[in-house]
Design a binder for these strands. Structure first.
Length: 204
DNA sequence: TTCCCGATTTACT
DNA sequence: GTAAATCGGGAAA
C-alpha cells in the first residue's frame, strides 16, 4: 500500500455505521488516526481498542439506553467523536458506531506514533518515543491534542480523521476482557478488547 | 444540593 | 506495589 493511500484516503462513514461494534473495534486496528489543530498535524496507528455496546452492556455509559447530556453523543450516527472527561483530569477518545439511536462506541486505547512526533512530545511534556507517549487512552488523546471540546465532531476531517494504514490479519490480533470496568459485573468479562500482539504501545 | 466514584496516569514508598 | 491527583456526571435526597 502506498503512503498516499495510507495517509490521504479518509475512511468512509459507512465503515463506522456497521451494526456490529466488536467488528468495527477489530477493524480499527491498523488504521491511522489523524488530527490537525492549528496547522499541527499528528497521527498514530491504532493498536488497541475496546467495544462498548449501549443497549446491553453494563460497562457502557449508555447502558439500557440511558440518556444524559454526556451520553447524547453516543446516539449520533457512527463516525462521530465521543470525547469525555474522567478522573478529574483525563480526556478519553471514542468513535461512535452503528446507526443513529444505537449507542455503541469504540474506545481507542493506544496508538503507535506515525507523524508529528515532536508535537506529541511537546503536548505530553516528555521526550520519549516509548509507550509512555501514546500507550494508554488518556495518553494518546493528549498526544493528539483531542479534548472534550471536540466531542460530537464528525471524523471526516478537517480536524480529526482516519486513513487506511497497513492490513492487519487475524493472526496479528489478540483479544481479552476490557480494562478498568470491574463495576460492570459479568459484562466486565466480555472479550471486547482488541490489540496487536507484541506491539510495545499496547497499554497493558 | 449532597455525595460517590470513575472506560487513568503518575509519583511515591 | 500503593496511593495521590482532581472534578464533573449522575443518582439520591
Amino acid at each position: 500500500m502506498s503512503r498516499e493511500t495510507k495517509t490521504s484516503k479518509n475512511i468512509e462513514l459507512d465503515f463506522y455505521q456497521r451494526a456490529n461494534v466488536t467488528r468495527v473495534a477489530r477493524d480499527l486496528l491498523g488504521k491511522i488516526l489523524w488530527t490537525n489543530f492549528h496547522g499541527k498535524i499528528t497521527a498514530g496507528v491504532i493498536v488497541e481498542t475496546e467495544a462498548y455496546c449501549g443497549a446491553t452492556d453494563r460497562a457502557c455509559h449508555a447502558f439500557s439506553n440511558k440518556r444524559t447530556p454526556r451520553t447524547a453523543t453516543m446516539y449520533l450516527p457512527g463516525g462521530h467523536a465521543y470525547v469525555y472527561f474522567v478522573y478529574g483530569m483525563h480526556h478519553l477518545f471514542n468513535i461512535v458506531t452503528n446507526k443513529a439511536e444505537q449507542a455503541d462506541a469504540v474506545l481507542i486505547r493506544a496508538i503507535e506514533p506515525y507523524e508529528g512526533l515532536a508535537v506529541m512530545q511537546r503536548r505530553r511534556k516528555m521526550q520519549t518515543k516509548g509507550k509512555e507517549l501514546t500507550g494508554g487512552p488518556a495518553r494518546l488523546t493528549q498526544a493528539l491534542g483531542i479534548e472534550v471540546k471536540h466531542d460530537k465532531e464528525l471524523l471526516s476531517g478537517p480536524r480529526i480523521w482516519l486513513s487506511a494504514g497497513d492490513r492487519v490479519t487475524n493472526g496479528m490480533i489478540r483479544v481479552s476482557k476490557r480494562i478498568g470496568v470491574e463495576y460492570a459485573g459479568e459484562d466486565a468479562n466480555l472479550p471486547w478488547r482488541f490489540y496487536i500482539k507484541g506491539n510495545k504501545y499496547v497499554s497493558k
